[in-house]
Design a binder for these strands. Structure first.
Length: 475
RNA sequence: GGCGCGGUAGCCAAGUGGUAAGGCCGAGCUCUGCAAAAGCUCUAUGCGCCGGUUCAAUUCCGGCCCGCGCCUCCA
């Protein structure tokens, strides 16, 4: 069955190219625009990365893990990273290393597979400079009056194919009108001339014919793609906000430099909204993964919540959706545990098509909500059958298929329990007293102690042979 | 102004030209000293509003209202 994905360029759902299984050199090349490492990424950023992670997993299931090459960059030099370094009075590299480490930790917590290559802009200055020199030599770029190098938009008539934007429709902003160094306000920077007061010690030797400075933002992706994946790639992805101008500019640069189609397929995931509106610090609805973990939610629940809506549709994130995600994951966990403890009559590991609807949904443009819906319907069927109601026989193949489903979604159930917050000595003592009272069947004092624990914000769960404590959530 | 997306139950969210997936919450029941957990059952005559096409529209077409995103360096 084919893996189909919406293509932003043609605005249709198209089958992804299938690499030749017989040719070990023929791999599916996949580039996902990564984060700018100047601060902690927020959950909106992670929506894109989690969606791309599911896509990566589907590609592996479809073509084989060895047939997929996934590259995601780190933007470690631009206005924001330099600005942050200046603000903190620290070297640029120190800032970007710190936030790269945080990004990696968050990705791990969210169980995202690492890309095969994670190139940095500062690690590819040479490649960027080379590309700019080619563009200058071909007449697609020129040195501006300020020493910067600009891409000459006029030299690329196909500009705007992705975003359907026409030059005259551009809103003229202060920033774009501000530049008399450029031939046209629409031209964008490939190389930015060094400005001591802004850039500090951040500078490199420039392309021939230009002074020292630093690369513009868009050129890094073009250069790193060329180096790590080649002149034409199979799939290029990112958030919708990158569609214009970033990806449009990448197309212009790469096409003009290489003379061939840049990306065969474009995919953009939509934005995450919080409480029905865009996230911003001033609105107080700006969340990082750490913010949510501190509130007592698991990273797994965040991952689930980010996949609960269609990737190409704005998703409204709320703390309630995390409650729902925790519960949903728990029931999936129960299903998995139950299935693992079945004694199967069928040991043949015969393939199961029970979860086919889940994969069908994922393969048709990454429809995660429909896939989750199907998964829960199947779960109900299995649970009913296990309870002795008539139904399709449960086989070991079902367990194997479920594990494949969990891999596709990236849900690692047994490793992602609800985080345990340490109870204070005082709480533990109350719990011990209550347990003792209960064992003695002194129910009145036991109930009193339960009320005390509840008042203190803890929930005590009785089990056959003991108890557990969990903090009550307040939100 | 330009480009694009969306309005489906208390909340989140799929979907289809033929009568509304799923999750959360809630309710009832089973179980249980209490509480929880777990299981079972129930919960939109309705899919922003008004027209049109059709045997049939939430689904197609037109208009309107409302919300959101982007429009030169935001995933």
């Amino acid at each position: 069955m084919a893996l189909r994905l919406h293509d932003s360029l043609t605005r249709t759902s198209r089958e992804l190219r299938r690499p030749d299984p017989a040719d070990p050199q023929d791999v599916f090349t996949f580039y996902n625009c990564g984060p700018t490492v100047y601060a902690a990424a927020h959950i909106g950023n992670f929506r894109t990365f989690v969606i791309n992670d599911v896509l990566r997993r589907l590609l592996e299931l479809e073509f084989g893990a060895a047939k997929v090459k996934h590259v995601r960059n780190l933007t470690d030099v631009d206005d924001r990273t330099i600005g942050q370094a200046k603000k903190e009075q620290r070297p640029l590299a120190e800032i970007t290393q710190k936030w790269t480490a945080k990004f990696h930790a968050d990705c791990d917590a969210l169980n995202c597979l690492r890309p095969h290559v994670e190139p940095t802009a500062t690690g590819h200055i040479k490649e960027q400079v080379n590309m700019i020199e080619v563009l200058m030599a071909k007449g697609n770029a020129y040195r501006g009056a300020d020493g910067s190098v600009y891409f000459k938009l006029q030299s690329f008539p196909d500009y705007g194919a992705l975003s359907r934007i026409k030059d005259r429709e551009l809103k003229i902003t202060d920033a774009s009108a501000d530049s008399d160094h450029k031939d046209s306000v629409s031209d964008f920077a490939l190389w930015k001339a060094y400005k001591p007061e802004e850039d500090g010690d951040v500078k490199w030797p420039g392309p021939k014919g230009a002074g020292e400075g630093r690369p513009g933002w868009h050129i890094e992706c073009s250069a790193m793609i060329k180096k790590h994946l080649g002149d034409t790639i199979d799939l290029h992805t990112g958030g919708v906000d990158l569609l214009f101008p970033h990806h449009e500019n990448e197309i212009a640069q790469s096409n003009c430099c290489n003379g061939v189609t840049f990306a065969r397929h474009w995919y953009h995931s939509e934005h995450l909204l919080v409480d029905g509106t865009s996230m911003s610090k001033s609105k107080g609805n700006f969340y990082t993964l750490s913010d949510l973990v501190e509130k007592g939610y698991s990273a797994a629940a965040v991952r689930y919540a980010l996949l609960a809506g269609h990737p190409r549709k704005q998703l409204n994130f709320t703390l309630d959706s995390l409650h729902a995600a925790e519960s949903a994951l728990k029931s999936l966990n129960d299903l998995y545990e139950n299935l693992r403890h079945v004694t199967f009559a069928d040991y043949a590991d015969s393939p199961s098509d029970r979860f086919q609807p889940v994969f069908s949904a994922l393969r048709e443009d990454l429809n995660t909500p429909t896939a989750l819906g199907a998964l829960f319907s199947i779960r109900a069927d299995i649970e009913r059958t296990m309870k002795g109601q008539p139904g399709k026989q449960i086989t070991k193949g079902d367990l194997i298929a479920l594990e494949k489903v969990l891999f596709a979604f990236g849900f690692v159930l047994e490793k992602t329990p609800v985080p345990k917050l340490a109870a204070t000595q005082n709480i533990t003592t109350l719990a011990e007293q209550r347990w003792a009272a209960k064992q003695a069947k002194d129910f009145a004092p036991a109930d009193k102690l339960r009320a005390d624990l509840t008042a203190a914000g803890w929930s005590m769960l009785d089990r056959k042979d003991g108890y557990s404590l969990e903090p009550l959530k307040n939100n």
